[in-house]
Structure formats: C-alpha cells, structure tokens
Write a protein that binds this DNA or RNA. Structure first.
Length: 165
DNA sequence: ATAAAGGCCACCC
DNA sequence: GGGTGGCCTTTAT
C-alpha cells in the first residue's frame, strides 16, 4: 500500500532550527518531509525526486511557524510520510522510542516482527523522510557504535545531546 | 526478472 | 582493529 502524495495545498519552506537550517515540506494532510539540506538546490532537488508530478509553493512563513512548534514548543504536528508497508512499519516503531533513549537496529527489527531483516531496517531508517519528528537519530548499532545518519553524524550526536536533558 | 546497493550483525582473525 | 558472508528491501537496469 502506498499512500498518496501530498495533494491539498502542497508547499515547502525553510527555517532555522537547533540543528541548522531545515526544509519542511507539508500540505493540509500534514508534514511529509523535514530535511537538513546543504543548499536551496539540494533541497528542491530532493523534493523533486520524492514527489514528482507535484507542484509546491514556497511558504517560509509557515515553515518557520512549524519549526517553532516542533523545536521550541515540542509539539508533534500531524505527519504524512510516504513509503512502503515495510517502511511505514519501521517508521512507526521509531516513534515508540521515548525521547532521551536509544535503541538498536536489531531491536527495531524485532519490534516489527522481522528479526532477520536488520539490514533492511537500516536502509528503511535511512529513508526516513521526516527527520527529528520520526526519531531515526535514536537508533544506534548493537556494538555501541553510532551507526549512520543521513544528515551527518555530527547532527545525530547533537540531537541525542539535545534530548538528554 | 535480475542486479546492486545499502545508516546491520555475528563471527572469525 | 579489520574483513567476510548472510540477511532483506528497494531501486535501477
């Protein structure tokens, strides 16, 4: 099952955040992406890849409002991530990790009833479209290593530090 | 239909 | 520390 791409008033915008500038993609159905791109171009390229056929307006004002909700007030706005069944299962499991705690890729695999799909879990976590809100940064390796992070390991560390207190 | 590439893990050296 | 083989999903041929 594949969810529909954003349809109702799709838009994107940039805002600052505790972890550097972020790009938020949203529609009336909720947030469908939160990224930390290096540039305007890489951000729009990413959007283009993820949602071809969709025409987005730029709305930085709303993006800043959302960022404030997320990072300052700790709200969790409505989300609308697009992905396969497997990915949805993984992303749902991520949202059950309490803030300030970590788990491992293997434990997530167990949690979704696919203990052998550890590697695929790693791949699915890497495909997480909504950074921070879907807390893929709380997943580390079984051997204690930090694992990877799409937006750089420094960023992953920062997020974990930020949540520690 | 098939190949190649992953944010992994256990096991060896 | 490092290398290898197995595992499973996704994406691009």
């Amino acid at each position: 099952m594949r969810q529909l791409p954003p349809q109702s008033e799709p838009a994107f915008g940039f805002s600052n955040s505790p972890f550097g500038e972020c790009c938020i993609v949203f529609s009336n159905d909720g947030i469908c992406a939160l990224t930390f791109p290096e540039s305007f171009e890489s951000a729009t390229y990413d959007i283009e890849q993820r949602f071809p056929e969709t025409n987005f307006r730029q709305n930085d004002e709303k993006a800043r409002r959302l960022a404030k909700q997320i990072f300052e007030l700790g709200d969790k706005p409505l989300m609308h991530p697009i992905g396969t069944d497997f990915q949805q299962a993984v992303w749902n499991a991520l949202q059950r990790i309490p803030a300030g705690e970590t788990t491992t890729y293997a434990q997530i695999a167990d949690a979704i009833g696919r203990p052998k799909a550890v590697r695929a879990v790693g791949t699915a976590i890497g495909a997480n479209p909504i950074a921070y809100l879907i807390p893929c940064h709380r997943v580390i390796r079984t051997d204690g290593g930090l694992g990877g992070f799409r937006w750089g390991l420094e960023c992953k560390k920062k997020m974990l530090e930020w949540e520690k207190k």
